[in-house]
């Protein structure tokens, strides 16, 4: 069974919600990424989304755009991201890792080579931001066959028909974008998110993660009341950018922020725990 599914089952048994940090691979420096991944696990990450830097990240706000630029300036590439995953797996065989990025680097590598490379490196899921379900069959099928979960976004504007279609292709979890905007946008509306998640649940049993715009522990806790997983990206990446010159302090402060989110989440108990 895929590590992602196993992880969600374990969380459900203990009545906890998943905390999913996002960082961009190679930011601020390639050699800091694997230690940072381990630090995130230690601080309470259940799953990690590892961004594959792209020159034209059209769904990302300035924080993650700049992280991509920093990483690319250091020569980061899809190939090297797979190397980093392999490196991480040498000492962590448990934590699910999801690659998040854009399609063109995968097109250039070739779908077959990418799927095999991701599987062999120990990648558990792939979220390709600019690959909607209409165009996804050629990549999602082989990923799934290789045991790597194709992960998809849902938006506030996604119709019921689209949700059903996406849920059919998706594995692992569904990633609900909490607002109309790019990563790192301003405040999200918790009540709206709750309503939309309830509607999505009528179409699928997959766990639902929520991301875009979750910056602090109180928001994370509020979202955890209604979602199965909380994704935190720009808030962490912004800190990494600010403290790029001081890796020790960077690791400490990013871990501290994630720990605070972990504690906020753990005050929220999943209803499943009461009934299981």
């Amino acid at each position: 069974m895929n590590r992602i599914t196993r992880r969600f089952q374990a969380l459900r048994r203990t009545g906890r919600k998943a905390l999913i940090p996002y960082i961009t691979a190679g930011d601020p420096r390639p050699e800091l990424t694997v230690p940072m991944l381990h630090a995130l696990v230690e601080a309470g990450a259940d799953i990690i989304e590892l961004g594959v830097p792209f020159s034209d990240p059209m769904a990302d706000g300035p924080v993650i755009q700049q992280a991509c630029e920093r990483a690319l300036a250091q020569g980061m590439s899809l190939r090297r991201v797979l190397d980093l995953v392999r490196d991480f797996r040498r000492t962590d065989g448990e934590t699910p890792l999801v690659l998040m990025g854009y399609l063109n680097p995968i097109e250039r590598m070739g779908y077959d080579a990418f799927v095999a490379g991701a599987r062999d490196a120990g990648v558990d899921g792939v979220l390709t931001v600019d690959l909607p379900p209409e165009e996804a069959a050629e990549l999602a099928g082989p990923l799934d066959a290789a045991g790597v979960a194709p992960i998809f976004l849902l938006a506030p504007t996604s119709s019921g028909e689209r949700i059903r279609r996406i849920a059919q292709l998706a594995r692992g979890y569904l990633y609900y974008v909490s607002l109309k905007g790019v990563t790192g946008s301003a405040a999200l509306n918790v009540a709206e998110v709750a309503d939309k998640l309830a509607a999505i649940r009528t179409h699928t049993d997959l766990p639902l993660g929520v991301g875009f715009g979750i910056k602090d522990p109180p928001t994370a806790a509020a979202i955890a009341e209604v979602a199965d997983a909380v994704v935190v990206g720009s808030a962490l990446v912004a800190k990494m950018g600010e403290l790029a010159d001081n890796p020790e302090r960077m690791r400490r402060e990013v871990a501290a922020l994630l720990t605070a989110m972990r504690q906020a989440l753990d005050r929220v108990r999943a209803p499943a725990a009461l009934t299981d």
Binding site: M58, L131, E134, E135, T157, S158, V177
Partner: peptide, 19 residues
């Protein structure tokens, strides 16, 4: 679906599909 042979199509984030 906007395809000219294998080219064209719609490769955007879900957030834009409805628009």
């Amino acid at each position: 679906t906007g395809h000219f042979g294998r080219y064209g199509g719609r490769f955007v984030a879900e957030t834009l599909m409805e628009a």
